[in-house]
Simulated assay, not measured.
Amino acid sequence: MSEIKITIAGEAHVHFAEEICSMMEQAAQQRGTGIAKRSHLYVSAKMMEGKAVIAISDNTPVGFCYIETWGHGKHVANSGLVVHPDFRNTGLARDIKAEIFKLSRKKFPEARIFGITTSLAVMKINSDLGYKPVTFSELTTDEDFWKGCQSCRNYDILTRTNRSHCLCTGMMFDPSKPAKPANKKLNKEEQWERFKRFMKFQGIKEGADRLRQKIKNKSGNLKINKSSWLSKISLF
């Protein structure tokens, strides 16, 4: 496979806009859901604003994603993620999402970054970046964002539910909420020490359980013996 270059899109990439829009439309048809239709003028504008990331191989666009802002920059969406069919399942989508996420954090450091998707692969990528699943009510209330869903074939579901849910899943990265520290990966020596501590603890626990059982058994025998002894005493 030829080398792939992922970069921030600019004026030099505007001539790829129509090809990218075609790729988005084909992807939406194949999946039967998602990816709101965009015009080549809209995609070109994102490139000119420096709000898009493009992946190129052999002077051909093979992946794309762009930034949208809502609520005066308080909310940011990484939208229109698309990868050419020949380059899927290669990790390219993950790399593009990582780059557009980095660009979003640089341009809008205080903004909440959100997205809606039906793709399990995208959900996994978002989760790795720190996104959390959220209800649609936690997303932007900007009408222009929801108008963008009108070209999706499932738009009627969204309207019937008063925008409470659809086939898409909402996910959000909130910079005001610190991420949980990742679990440290242990080397072999650390894993062995942890295992030994666990086994030692298990031994202590099992020993304590046996001791409790012995005490319980002795107490039971004592009660039986006392009862037997008392039964021999004559009562007036």
Results as ranks from 00 to 15, higher is better:
2 S>F: 10
3 E>L: 15
3 E>A: 15
4 I>E: 07
4 I>V: 15
5 K>A: 11
5 K>V: 13
6 I>E: 02
7 T>F: 03
8 I>N: 00
10 G>R: 09
13 H>K: 07
15 H>P: 00
16 F>R: 12
16 F>K: 08
17 A>F: 06
26 Q>G: 07
28 A>L: 08
29 Q>I: 10
31 R>K: 10
32 G>R: 05
36 A>W: 02
43 V>M: 15
48 M>E: 12
52 A>H: 05
53 V>N: 03
57 S>W: 10
60 T>K: 14
60 T>I: 08
60 T>S: 11
69 T>M: 03
72 H>Q: 15
73 G>S: 02
76 V>C: 05
77 A>L: 09
78 N>V: 11
79 S>D: 04
84 H>C: 07
89 N>C: 15
97 K>H: 04
97 K>M: 09
98 A>K: 09
100 I>W: 01
107 K>V: 09
108 F>Y: 12
109 P>G: 06
113 I>F: 00
114 F>S: 03
115 G>N: 04
118 T>E: 13
119 S>Q: 07
127 S>H: 12
128 D>R: 05
128 D>G: 08
133 P>V: 11
133 P>N: 09
136 F>W: 03
138 E>A: 10
140 T>S: 02
141 T>P: 00
142 D>S: 00
143 E>K: 10
147 K>D: 00
151 S>L: 01
152 C>V: 06
157 I>M: 15
159 T>H: 02
164 S>M: 11
165 H>L: 06
166 C>K: 00
166 C>R: 01
171 M>D: 03
178 P>G: 02
180 K>C: 08
184 K>H: 09
185 K>M: 06
187 N>R: 02
188 K>T: 05
192 W>V: 05
195 F>V: 11
197 R>L: 14
201 F>L: 07
202 Q>F: 08
203 G>I: 02
207 G>D: 12
208 A>M: 09
209 D>C: 12
211 L>E: 09
213 Q>W: 08
217 N>R: 05
218 K>Q: 14
219 S>N: 08
219 S>P: 01
225 N>C: 11
226 K>W: 07
228 S>W: 08
234 S>Y: 10
